[in-house]
Every structure is written in C-alpha cells, then in structure tokens.
C-alpha cells in the first residue's frame, strides 16, 4: 500500500461510520465472545478484527471460581459491550435478562434474541416484537435479531429498534447470505441500520452482505471456530471493508453477453 492510499483508507475509515442511537463506530464488524479455544485467542481475534462492539451472554456467575472472568479479557474502554438475550424463548425472559444486563452497568444496549425453535434457532417474531416495544420504552438501545422478513423488519423499526438484524442463515450454520433479495428489500425500506446477524461462514459471505448495502455484519462462529480464529478475524476485517468500498463504489450491472474492454477502432490488419 502506498502512503497516499493508506491515508485515504484511514480517512474513509474515520468518516464512514456505523451510526445508531447517536453512537458512532468506525468498524462495521460486530463479533462475539463465544466458542473460542480460550480467552487469549479471543482477545487476539478481537484485536485482529478491528471490531469495536463485542457481544456477550448474560449468565450466572460461576461460584466455584475455576473459570477466569471473560471481562478480564475485554478492555471495556476500547470495546462496547453488547449483551445478548441468547437462550430466551419468551418476551418475558428476554426482558428480564435485558434488565439484569443493564444492571451490570457496562451497557444499555441489548442484542435482543427471542428464540422460537431449538433446532433452527429461528426467532419467535411475535415475542420479539413484544420485547422490543417494552425495552424501547424502558430506554434500552434495542438491536433485535430477526429473520430476513421485510415486514418484520419494518415492524421492529416502527417499535423503535435502533437497528434491525436479519439473519443471513441459521445461527452457526455458516451457510452465508441465503436470501440476498430479501435483505435487499429490507435495505430499501429501512431507516435504521441493517446489520446481518448470523449465517456468515467465511470472508466472502461478509463481503456479499456489505456489497448488498448492509450497514454491518455480526458474527461469532465463523471466526471463533475457524482453524485459525485470529487469521479469520483479520480476513473478516478486510472482507467487511472490501464489501463496503465496493458498495460505495457502485458495481457494474450484470449483463448476459460480453462487452469488450479494448477499443474496437484501430485494429491491426493481420
């Protein structure tokens, strides 16, 4: 990279921010803290990813104290914590979990999950909407995990969600963006950021989400369960940037037939 392009790169990273609920983030990648081989590799993957927001689960403190605290490995001055309501199957459970998470005092944001089915981990949209309405009224910054349904996305936005987070594919499946057209329709109507949450398997999946025009991507398994989580975290950082740049640059239309890139005039007599 030349000095000039590095400068431009830096400038763009600074001005092109992910913004919701009045907060600005330079990175459009949000990553999890689960499933890493150990806390140390998680910490290194976080650094390599460039992410500024990390998701955490809300659980009972382990009383036998044999496990180290996750928070020893996350610099809360550097990273914004995004507690999730993973494992909740009703609006009531999710609301209670969100309140407990806020009480810890490190974040008023919540990655709202209300799961409707154990095998697919698809959201229960009815309960999700209920929980969103309540938590927004209670002053939370609510980021709901939903399916790729444009109608649901609109309802969540109307309920005051700070962003909508449609899945690309089932959580942990690594199947990529299964329905880019639905994501596109969600993007067309959305007035809040659209962050793809779940389904990304590798770097190109993240790039596709960003090329579609998504505002960000949230992932966990794709990085944490890669053979080399730190290298994959770096790959994702570039993938997100590449996809974002390509989206801003504006891709060419798809055409069925070839269009020559070399001049048709001045052909040599051979």
């Amino acid at each position: 990279m030349t000095d000039a392009t590095m400068r431009e790169d830096k400038a763009m990273e600074q001005s092109d921010t992910l913004t919701f609920a009045g907060r600005e983030f330079r990175s459009r990648l949000i990553i999890g803290t689960g499933k890493y081989p150990d806390h140390r590799s998680m910490q290194r993957a976080h650094e390599a990813s460039g992410a500024e927001i990390v998701t955490v689960a809300v659980r009972r403190v382990n009383l036998d104290r044999t496990q180290e605290s996750l928070l020893d490995y996350i610099d809360t001055k550097k990273y914004t914590l995004l507690p999730n309501t993973a494992g909740c199957y009703t609006a009531e459970e999710a609301i209670k979990t969100a309140f407990l998470a806020r009480e810890v005092g490190l974040s008023d944001m919540v990655k709202l999950e209300v799961i409707g089915d154990q095998r697919t981990l698809f959201p229960d949209n009815e309960e999700l909407l209920k929980a969103t309405q309540v938590l927004v009224k209670e002053g939370f910054v609510v980021l709901p995990y939903t399916n790729d349904d444009p109608v649901m996305a609109r309802k969540l936005e109307d309920a005051g969600a700070a962003a909508v987070m449609p899945l690309g594919a089932p959580i942990g499946s690594g199947l990529g963006i299964r329905n880019p057209y639905n994501i596109k329709i969600i993007l067309e109507a959305a007035r809040v950021p659209v962050i793809v949450d779940a389904g990304v398997g590798t770097a190109s999946d993240a790039t596709i989400a960003m090329e579609l025009g998504c505002d960000g991507v949230l992932m966990n398994t794709a990085i944490a369960c890669a053979k080399d989580p730190v290298a994959m975290a770096e790959a994702m950082r570039h993938a997100i940037r590449a996809g974002r740049l390509a989206h801003l640059a504006g891709r060419i239309p798809r055409k069925l037939y070839a269009t020559a890139s070399s001049p048709l005039e001045g052909m040599i007599e051979l």
Binding site: G32, V58, V61, L100, V104
Partner: peptide, 12 residues
Amino acid sequence: IEIITFMAGGSA
C-alpha cells in the same frame, strides 16, 4: 439470590 455477569457468547 441470583448473581449474574457477562459470559462468553455470540448468539443463542
């Protein structure tokens, strides 16, 4: 009493 904190997790 429930004492809760943040643990490693991504989704679900």
